[in-house]
Simulated assay, not measured.
Amino acid sequence: MRLKIISMMAATAALLGIAPPSQAAVDGPDVFWKLSMWGNPRALSVGMERLAEKVAAETNGKFKIKIFYGGQLSKSRENLDGLKLNAFEGAAFCNFYHPGKNPAFMVFSLPFLPLGDPRVDKYVRSKMMSHPAMIADMEKWNAIPYVSGLLPQYEILGKGEPPLTLEAWKGMRVRAGGGLGSAMEKLGAVRQTLPAGETSTAFQRGALDAAAFPYTYAHVAFKISDEADWYTSNLTPGTSECGWVFNKTAYGKLPKQYQDLLMGMRDEVMDATQAAYAEQDKKNLPMFEKTMHKITYDDATLEEFRKVAGQPVWEEWIADNADKFDSQGVFDAIWQYAEEAKATLK
Rank of each mutant, 00 (worst) to 15 (best):
L3E: 14
L3R: 15
K4A: 15
I5K: 15
A11W: 13
A11L: 14
G17N: 02
I18R: 06
S22V: 08
D30S: 12
F32R: 13
W33K: 07
K34Y: 00
K34I: 01
P41F: 00
A43S: 00
L44C: 09
S45F: 02
M48F: 12
E49S: 03
E49Y: 05
E53A: 12
K54G: 11
A56S: 12
G61K: 00
I65L: 11
I65D: 09
G70D: 03
S74E: 03
N79Y: 01
K84Y: 05
L85A: 14
F88R: 00
A92R: 07
K101V: 09
A104P: 08
M106H: 13
L113P: 10
L115W: 01
D121M: 10
V124E: 05
M128E: 06
M129C: 06
H131N: 12
H131C: 04
A133C: 06
A136G: 11
K140R: 15
A143C: 01
L151T: 05
L151A: 10
Y154F: 14
G160H: 06
G160Y: 01
E161T: 11
T165N: 07
E167S: 14
E167D: 13
G178I: 01
G181N: 04
G181M: 00
E185Q: 12
G188R: 10
V190Q: 00
L194K: 02
G197N: 06
Q204S: 12
A207M: 01
P214E: 08
T216L: 08
I224A: 03
S233N: 11
N234V: 03
L235V: 05
T239Q: 09
E241G: 08
K248D: 09
K256N: 14
D267E: 14
E268L: 11
D271A: 15
A272M: 09
Y277G: 09
A278Q: 12
M287G: 13
K290F: 04
D299S: 13
L302N: 02
F305V: 08
Q311T: 15
P312C: 07
V313H: 02
E315Y: 06
Q328V: 05
F331C: 06
D332V: 10
D332N: 12
A333W: 12
A338D: 08
E340P: 13
A341P: 04
T344K: 15
L345P: 05
